[in-house]
């Protein structure tokens, strides 16, 4: 009961613990990469941020599906908030990726990389979701249109993820290949702790934003009733 009433607080606490553990592992425990040296530490945040963005978009599409299929109350709002989180994490992926590209390849961006371009396409697709959503008056039509759009976008996630694995020539590193993770055990553990921390962060922000939006809606309803 207490847990159910304090979900955000529990998630926030978990985020703090996991984030502290991840940062301690990244900066004080995991060894330097033999090839890239210290700058490889960007990997422990860049890749989990990108995977978290995929999870957010996937969650948004799932909620959109529930809205269209079962007409679940609140599913539209949950889908919207998840996609909002996905776009934020997507922007962070592009920024951190660009910094890593500069230090590793000497350029901020390269159009010849399928992984980069496809992630940008996915990001822009979901960024356009907001233009569609806010161009329609609030109501069932807006919710249905947004849900259909969110579901279309989910097709881009596996395409974006598999892009570098299907390409023959690439400079973007592939860590998780069909032969398993190409990382030392200590690096793999650090990666998973960092990913757990970022998932917990996304979960906390998702719950917080949802809480704020629901509170806002209820307050507006109360205002109208009292007016």
């Amino acid at each position: 009961m207490w847990l159910r009433n304090n979900q955000v607080a529990v998630l926030a606490g978990l985020t703090v613990v996991l984030m502290a553990a991840a940062l301690a592992l990244i900066f004080f425990w995991v060894p330097n990469d033999a090839d890239q040296g210290f700058s490889q530490r960007i990997f422990y945040f860049h890749v989990p941020i990108a995977l978290t963005a995929y999870v957010c978009f996937g969650w948004g599409a799932l909620k959109a599906f529930f809205h269209l299929w079962k007409r679940s109350p609140g599913a539209d709002l949950e889908s919207y908030v998840a996609i909002h989180q996905g776009v934020i994490f997507g922007a962070l992926t592009l920024i951190t990726g660009s910094l890593w590209a500069k230090v590793s390849w000497g350029v901020w961006w390269t159009w010849s990389e399928k992984q980069l371009v496809l992630f940008l396409v996915l990001f822009l697709f979901y960024a356009a979701y907001f233009m569609l959503r806010f161009s329609v008056e609030p109501g069932p039509a807006r919710a249905n249109l947004s849900a259909v759009y969110a579901l279309f976008g989910v097709v881009l996630i596996p395409v974006s993820f598999l892009a570098i694995r299907l390409g023959e020539r690439y400079i973007h590193p592939v860590v998780f290949s069909s032969r398993g993770p190409q990382l030392a055990d200590s690096m793999l553990l650090t990666f998973f702790v960092a990913w757990a921390a970022l998932l917990a962060l996304a979960g906390t922000l998702y719950r917080l934003e949802l809480l704020g939006k629901r509170l806002d809606a209820e307050l507006r309803e109360l205002k109208e009733a009292l007016a």
Binding site: I49, T96, V103
Partner: peptide, 22 residues
């Protein structure tokens, strides 16, 4: 501070700033 260290600091700094902005 080496060039690599500066970029690592920038990445983690940006994530920290994002949380602060939120």
């Amino acid at each position: 501070m080496t060039s690599g260290e500066k970029y690592v600091a920038a990445v983690y700094g940006i994530v920290f700033l994002f949380v602060l902005a939120y």
